[in-house]
Design a protein around this nucleic acid. Structure first.
Lengths: 181, 181
DNA sequence: ACGCCATGTCAACACTTGTTGACAAAAAAC
DNA sequence: GTTTTTTGTCAACAAGTGTTGACATGGCGT
């Protein structure tokens, strides 16, 4: 299923996998085209260059489901996004790890910071409301990013072996603590 | 004060600053030697190469103060490490951001994961104790790494403008939530 | 059959990377 | 003062980077 036929899709798939895990400047054009089984010159033809290919993978990110719920379901939906093991296609936590992997990048870091602020922190603060909305939003994001970091990047096995139910409960508890005072 | 006289120290200082913020493979030898005002060939002479220079900056990291306290002061000391704005020399949070910046690196990622496990997660779990010691340790680390990430890497101004007292209280509250069942 | 255009192939480019070896200068040892 | 050792300078290297342009190929409409 979901087989990539056109070479444009082959490039997008390989680019998403590599860019999102290793970081933009740790992946060469030839790495991607090698994985896609495609000539290296086609990146410039289809996307205008390496940067265009990376930004194309960013442009197709779906909106975060937790932000479209009411303020009451927000925390539950956010926890749900992180409860299941990392599924390359559906799990929203992959986007979080992608943001972590690319925020340090000297070329893409600025764009990533913009994305976090405009597409995560600001909408979250608006949903949460109250006097400390921005503070609470940033703290909740810190909890979510921290969990994603420990599991995916640091590969802490203590968290990797937890059941989805236990994980969801834990993130709910931490999230509530983040939204207090 | 603390002026670097020997060129070896000049290289160490520049390497620490650049490697720790941009990540190992996003910094070239000429970047470092340029900042240090030193010839590029001296890196290989003094440290055996780029990798040796990076590992030299890792080897001089002092032990985390929070791990040397009793189990009771552990959370307070950990929160203290993250309460103050990032001071390049004294703050332990800089080490956390360095670990974040280099865990994605294709060459150094393995070493970084080892460090987190052996020097942070394992000793923390031993201090905490109990049936879910490893789980609690990983969750507490997730909170600390998440806060460091939001402040330093994503540069969220909502957290940057908080006072040390408010930050310490917030991390204490989150940390206690992390240590509950 | 012909031309046309999208698609893919290949070699080459200018540039940066980390590292090395030959050489000069300075400091230390004797 | 003369050797020996350390320390710094310079040019060059092989390998890898992103990108480009020339050329071949295939499918399409007319």
């Amino acid at each position: 299923m979901t087989k990539a036929v056109t070479t444009r899709d082959k490039l997008m798939d390989a680019a998403r996998t590599l860019f999102w895990t290793r970081g933009y400047s740790n992946v060469s054009v030839r790495d991607i085209t090698g994985a896609a089984g495609v000539d290296a010159a086609l990146v410039s033809r289809y996307f205008g260059g390496k940067q265009g290919l990376f930004e194309a993978t960013l442009a197709e990110i779906p909106p975060w489901e937790a932000l479209e719920a009411g303020p009451e379901d927000l925390l539950a939906k956010a926890a749900e996004s992180f409860a299941h093991p990392f599924d390359p296609e559906t799990d929203a936590a992959n986007v979080f790890t992608m943001l972590i992997a690319n925020v340090i990048d000297p070329e893409m870091g600025g764009k990533i910071r913009e994305m976090v602020q405009q597409q995560l922190a600001d909408p979250l603060a608006e949903k949460i409301g109250g006097a400390h909305a921005q503070d609470h939003a940033a703290t909740l994001l810190a909890v979510l990013f921290g969990m994603a970091l420990m599991r995916k990047n640091f590969q802490t096995n203590a968290l990797a072996k937890k059941s989805p139910d236990a994980l969801r409960a834990q993130i709910m508890r931490l999230g509530q603590a983040a939204l207090e005072t």
